[in-house]
Design a protein around this nucleic acid. Structure first.
Lengths: 183, 183
DNA sequence: TTATTACAGAACTCTTTGTTCAATAAAATT
DNA sequence: AATTTTATTGAACAAAGAGTTCTGTAATAA
């Protein structure tokens, strides 16, 4: 990829995430993005078809980064989804969220983030589905699996939003406890 | 309230909810609404400051209607929040959702509904807070109450969305079972 | 050095938003 | 029933944003 392209792309992402932390997605205009990124209007549209596609690609990059980091932090010989304890998977997720990526946290705290949450949930369904056997007690055997997966993902999202909205005062370990306690 | 005002207001709500069942909130223009409602442009802005205020007022009307109906269906001598079993409260909610109000269901299934869900959650927090003692086992005593309330509301919203997205095949009784089983 | 590719920046069309105003019709008041 | 008040109409209007097109220029690759 051309160095110029990379620089422009990153400038757009940077400006966009900064604006996302200030206001809702629907309130942000292309004009604001290009002004902050200091690029031409035509350049923006050469990179992204619309504002929605920009958000889409930002989400994809964030999740690649998130799951890559979790892989690296984790045991290199085993796949992340094959961990022995379910707690370790979620603990790593919470730890990573706390450590860096204010970008992701901004998307969690703002309002117009249905698209982002859609991606997040999609990514998590695979993770949860591999963990679901561990949660299957006799009590839950009667419930449809898709309902259980949906419930665990919804709970995870709800937990993170509560955590972020309350200022992330709790440690990742505590949040993992809370999360595991309610599911 | 003037009969003319009521008629235009209802025509706007009708057109708006019909459009909401077809496309996302952000895709709907004021022009489409007034064309479908068959009213003048100035009339729309005489009633609603912006499109967002229209959604806001629609949500408020829907929730008034929802909770009023639940009151009427329920025991008239006791307040809904004072019911003996927690299941009855949630069962009534699920029953009401199934019976009527395609309007509410449309808002649950569409994407851009953060504002709607915000109202819904707000309304539910009070309901849940009155029920929370019943769920307080020794296990949950360690968890902050706000976390528990947040979790129950998030689970309720997640349950309804799963129900609606899967075509509402299950009966309100079954959904209540599922819901109570996971919390 | 040459050819390719990306960017700047301006001008432009189109859509949508929100406002204004005079004319008209319905409702409330006397 | 006559008059006053209020709601609606419809058109015209300005402003803002989206997305496109073009030419000249600078950086990169061959």
């Amino acid at each position: 990829m051309d160095r110029r392209q990379r620089k422009t792309r990153e400038a757009i992402f940077k400006a966009f995430t900064e604006l996302l932390s200030q206001k809702d997605f629907s309130q942000i205009t292309v004009g604001e993005i290009i002004e902050r990124a200091d690029i031409g209007r035509a350049t923006f549209y050469a990179h992204f078809e619309t504002k929605d596609f920009l958000l889409k690609e930002l989400c994809e990059e964030l999740f690649c980064h998130l799951f890559d980091s979790m892989h690296k932090e984790n045991n290199h010989h085993r796949h992340i989804f094959d961990c022995d304890a379910p707690s370790s998977v979620f603990l790593h997720l919470f730890q990573h969220l706390m450590k860096n990526d204010n970008n992701i946290l901004g998307l969690f705290s703002c309002r117009n983030n249905e698209l982002f949450l859609g991606y997040f949930k999609e990514s998590l369904v695979q993770l949860v589905q591999n963990q679901i056997d561990l949660f299957d007690s006799e009590k839950n055997k009667k419930l449809p699996e898709s309902f259980l997966v949906n419930h665990i993902v919804a709970t995870l999202v709800g937990t993170i939003r509560w955590w972020v909205d309350n200022g992330m005062k709790e440690s990742p370990e505590t949040i993992t406890e809370y999360f595991l306690a309610v599911i």
